[in-house]
Nucleic acid binder design. Structure first.
Lengths: 333, 333
DNA sequence: GCCTCGGCCTGGAACGTTCCAGGAAAAGGG
DNA sequence: CCCTTTTCCTGGAACGTTCCAGGCCGAGGC
């Protein structure tokens, strides 16, 4: 009842009364067919519901034109990045192949899947793998790490200037009059070290060394919530948080404890993920420029694949402060 | 500096001094080669770092053994489902190919991508497409709709008993002593109609017709927040919400307004997505059995592909109440 | 001793594309 | 009017597999 075999190039060709080579041309939108024939071919293809078989196509051309993307299913910011990657790949002639990291499916498994699909390059979102294993992978094919610094010459890195981002956050708070500014960090998460460093040096630069305080956090809401509970034992007037997700946990615990945001406590997140933009969250945050990051990642991957000469292995994109409703002047003492 | 062409069957064959057909046999672990030769071939393959080319393999065998999955990148519950699908596919010999729906990439585009990859079946998570277009798709290949009812005989449906789920929620609240129970609905979202119906009939069944009240919501946090603002003008003692994401928005607005959860207001979500389980959210919710739903979806898709005889087009999985911290007895008047 | 039968192996034809070399006809150039 | 160029088109050889039809050889049955 189903499937009387999918239509092939040959089917379309006989129907349109031309050779399959010509149909191939037309389908790929290459010159070499008259407008008239082109229309006939397209009509025939339409009628047969013809869909090119990418396997055969790629087998023959020896190329897959596939960019493998490894992402964390549970991270809203990754969702934003993947959205950007799809958009960035749109007009390039390359396609995105997704492979998710889940609680039951590790990064190496995700990568293996993409290798069997013969991806030509890999874009890894905030990879957790060791530098060594990333480096090993990079000897086999172009690898772009997105949103995580990697100290290895083989892998390309596209990331935000995380230290600078945290400086923006701290300076915004200082501008509002804060001095007691605590940082809730991301532990061993990608980028966490840089953000910690940015916080520290900004505090020092402004002579607030004595108020420097770092509370261990993490990259999830529950880690943020836990950190907030610690924090509230001895609250500062402002807090910068490793990322938006973690900040959400903070906000939640803070709101329940009766401390008012932003009047008693200012909170700054990081990422400007879709979470932060939600009207009821309205989180002041440091925006990573997703459009730019993803565009750079895709073009870098493609350049590597095509062997274009490339100057720097690492591109650092400046982040941007987005002021929303969770920051204000500190309470009058 | 990279990739001096990957090894092929023929390379292995000449190295081992046998025909490529034989190598093919050995690689697929089929009978027809002596132990001795088998070892020689495997050695040669090992030395050359041979990896079979799945494109060629699938092209020739006419099968892709690929299950296409279309999911919404922004939905945490979809993330949970995808996680389950990966797990369910693990031992089946089929692989999962992901295609995301994003703000800039519609469902039909996501499907087209999978069609070109020659997926053998499609699993669509809460598809938004019209019944008609799903039906059309289903004439070309097996289609399984997950978590959305579809009134068409061509497409398989695996879903939770949503009406029943809402009855569970309402009855739990009634058991606690509530009578003023409002429902915040999901508008036109998949499953919303069933949940609305379940709420209504449960209220009627318990003689609470006069307290029946439905506030328009949606499937995102911000829609939940908006609904909560409406709700608070004239608050009930309990509210059942279309899904966890929406409930999160409700919780947030409620917490900020000084109304205590659960003592002033009980809240029940839907999905038991990872959001609900977060310690600081601790949301009472109706769990969809992700493990069962995803296992059924995968096996159903495979059965269709393999032409096994199948009785019912639709499988309805009972949901389950998960009591956490957002429900309690109503305040003493 | 001949026939059959298994076990092991080979060669070549697919699969649905793209790519390349070329050919026929129309268009331009002297 | 002939020669070149361009435009449009065709046929067939790849790509790396799997699948099918067989071939060869030794063992067993009559």
């Amino acid at each position: 009842m189903r499937d009387e075999r999918r239509a092939t190039l040959t089917d379309v060709a006989t129907r349109a009364g031309v050779s399959k080579s010509l149909v191939s041309l037309v389908m790929r939108d290459e010159p070499g067919a008259s407008a008239e024939t082109r229309r006939r071919v397209l009509d025939a293809a339409e009628q047969l519901g013809y869909q090119p078989d990418s396997r055969a196509r790629l087998l023959r051309s020896g190329r897959s034109r596939l960019l493998g993307v490894v992402f964390g299913l549970q991270h809203p910011f990754h969702a934003d990045l993947v959205t950007g990657l799809y958009a960035a790949a749109r007009e390039t002639g390359y396609e995105i192949a997704l492979s998710a990291v889940t609680p039951g499916r590790g990064e190496s498994e995700a990568v293996t899947g993409l290798l069997q699909d013969r991806c030509e390059a890999l874009i890894l979102l905030g990879p957790q793998s060791s530098t060594a294993s990333l480096a090993r992978l990079a000897t086999r094919m172009p690898v772009v790490a997105l949103a995580r610094p990697v100290r290895d010459n083989g892998v390309d890195v596209i990331r935000s200037a995380d230290a600078e981002g945290l400086a923006l956050a701290v300076e915004h708070l200082i501008g509002l009059g804060h001095r007691e500014i605590t940082h809730i960090d991301g532990g061993r998460a990608p980028g966490a070290a840089d953000r910690r460093r940015g916080y520290r040096s900004a505090m020092r630069r402004h002579g607030l060394t004595e108020h420097e305080r770092i509370v261990p956090g993490g990259l999830t809401e529950s880690e943020g919530a836990a950190a907030a509970r610690t924090l509230l034992e001895n609250p500062p007037t402002a807090v910068t948080v490793f990322n938006d997700r973690c900040a959400l946990g903070v906000l939640d615990v803070v709101a329940r404890s009766g401390v008012g945001v932003p009047h008693d406590l200012s909170v700054v997140g990081y990422d400007d993920s879709s979470l932060a933009r939600l009207a009821h969250v309205d989180l002041t945050t440091i925006a990573q420029d997703v459009a730019v990051l993803t565009r750079l990642a895709v073009t870098r991957a493609i350049h590597r694949v095509e062997g274009a000469p490339i100057d720097r292995r690492e591109i650092v994109v400046p982040p941007r402060l987005v002021v929303r409703g969770t920051t204000a002047a500190p309470p009058r003492p």
